[in-house]
Design a protein around this nucleic acid. Structure first.
Length: 500
DNA sequence: CTGAGTCCTG
DNA sequence: CAGGACTCAG
């Protein structure tokens, strides 16, 4: 049980969002740019320092201890615990913040859309801004040693975390790619480095050189990790994760669940198709700095799934021109409208499929659900979501039936035997409209029986005035629970599922 | 204490 | 429909 487990899941969804990849690309760019710049700085510095101070061996003055000397005792304590981890991490974190921040400035389309609060202080001096973030759950991940990599794997999915690294990646040859012109655009980065240096009490040229080298190393190893990380990810993660970049291959359901359960920050409009700026390998797409802003803003699951357009399809009383004749639809589908529909259809499915399942089982256990959503990596929240859906379905189901039971009673029906539910019954139609609005499946006959049984139970109970007792419905629920059928196999069929 | 469910509310 | 309070069983 990793404390980060719960939160890490909030990070997931972004992975599915094309914009996330855009964002990563962007960060990647930045990293290279900055690395390059660092190198230049270092070169420059080293020339200077070698001229001024002959003995490089003294460079150890940059050690964290040097930093603590002026600082509070608290800091000392902490450095005791973490050894030089502390400072490293600080710098690293600042680096992250910076990168993230930068990318935000340059990338309006960015939709992480969660941390309005977090980065407003970005113009403040970097010295003080740490405290707040320190406590955030994800941050703890960075404190882990690389030695417990394995543990990390078990702890759900922490994507793109940066672990402070060992030295195996010494100075790697910089892939020399794009020669980045030194534009004013990059000035903030220099400022940032200066701040950083100040923070770390870097004064002497030698120390500065050393400091910059370390910084470079960190930056670069981060990039390297990106590559490693992406190779590693597919392992612990379900297949769906590896698919996420190929938008032609949307996992029908997981997409939704994750999107919905965790990231609802995006306003409705579906993102434009993600385009990778450069690089074709997966490692090019990912950058290890996960956008460390906590995405724990309460997610309202329907927010994305039931974006206005999508939601309208589910809401009763909706003129669903689109869905009801989806078959004929395909004839006129042109590029854009088709695209739109695809997007919405994907989202529509998850929920709809769950609804269809309701025809077979009213009380699916979570284990059953897992079986029928094999490509979904279940976690607490997802499970809860599904359970909640079924709970809501049931609610509607029982309310309708109770209503009709009372109605029949009022109409003078006497014997429960007179209550017969067929596909022509009003009650059936109402339910079918709710769960199977587009007639996507043939409702199993058993469902009629269940409805009928339920109706009779309610009827009988009301007739006996059991409804005056406190929780009179519960006994009925128990009876109905036993009537669950097995979910047919075709729910497992990916093709069928996609065709919904 | 936790998970499953229900009930109630917005 | 989602959230949250609440109940109840294990």
């Amino acid at each position: 049980m990793n404390p980060s487990t719960n939160f890490s899941s909030y990070l997931l969804p972004s992975v599915f969002d094309p914009r996330y990849h855009q964002h990563l690309n962007h960060l990647n760019d930045m990293a290279f740019t900055h690395t390059k710049m660092l190198q230049e700085i270092i070169e420059k510095r080293s020339v200077e320092s070698s001229a001024s101070s002959p003995s490089p061996s003294t460079s150890s003055s940059i050690s964290p201890l040097a930093a603590t000397s002026n600082d509070s005792i608290q800091q000392q304590k902490r450095s005791h615990a973490h050894l030089d981890n502390n400072n490293e991490e600080q710098r690293q974190q600042q680096g992250k913040d910076f990168l993230i921040k930068r990318s935000k400035v340059n990338d309006d389309a960015d939709d992480e859309g969660d941390d309005d609060d977090e980065d407003e202080e970005e113009n403040e001096n970097h010295h003080s801004k740490r405290s707040r973030k320190q406590l955030k759950p994800q941050q703890f991940l960075t404190e882990k040693n690389q030695s417990d990599d394995d543990k990390d794997l078990s702890s759900e999915e922490e994507i793109g975390e940066v672990n402070s690294q060992d030295e195996k990646q010494n100075i790697l040859p910089i892939p020399q790619p794009p020669i980045m012109p030194f534009s004013p655009h990059n000035l903030p980065f220099l400022n940032y480095i200066q701040d950083l240096a100040r923070t770390n009490n870097i004064t002497s040229p030698i120390a500065m050189t050393r400091f910059l080298e370390n910084l470079q190393k960190e930056l670069f190893s981060a990039v390297q990790n990106a590559a490693l990380e992406t190779k590693r990810i597919p392992l612990p993660l379900p297949s769906m994760f590896s698919q996420t970049v190929h938008h032609h291959h949307h996992p029908y359901f997981s997409q939704i669940l994750f999107n919905n359960s965790f990231v609802n920050h995006y306003p409705p409009p579906p993102p434009p198709p993600p385009l990778l700026r450069f690089g074709n390998t997966s490692s090019d797409r990912t950058f290890p700095f996960h956008l460390s802003t906590p995405k724990k803003r309460r997610t309202k699951v329907t927010d994305t799934r039931l974006s206005p357009r999508i939601g309208s399809k589910i809401i009763p009383h909706d003129d669903l021109i689109d869905d009801d004749k989806s078959s004929s639809n395909h004839s006129y589908e042109s590029t854009t409208s088709n695209h739109r529909r695809q997007q919405s259809t994907i989202e529509y499915n998850a929920y709809q499929i769950t609804k269809l399942m309701f025809f077979y089982t009213r009380y699916p256990s979570s284990s059953v659900l897992k079986v029928y959503f094999p490509d979904v990596r279940f976690n607490k929240l997802i499970t809860a979501q599904l359970v909640k859906w079924f709970s809501n379905f049931r609610e509607f189901f029982y309310i309708q039936i109770e209503k009709y039971a009372r109605q029949y009673l009022a109409e003078g029906v006497r014997k429960v035997e007179d209550l017969i539910i067929t596909t022509d019954s009003d009650l059936y139609r109402v339910l079918n409209l709710h769960y199977n609005r587009s007639n996507q499946i043939d409702v199993p006959l058993s469902f009629c029986d269940v409805v009928q049984s339920t109706l009779r139970e309610f009827f009988h109970a009301i007739q006996q005035q059991k409804d005056l007792e406190p929780s009179w419905k519960k006994s009925i629920y128990k009876i109905i629970q036993r009537l669950d059928d097995q979910i047919p196999e075709f729910f497992k069929d990916e093709h069928w599922v996609h065709s919904i």
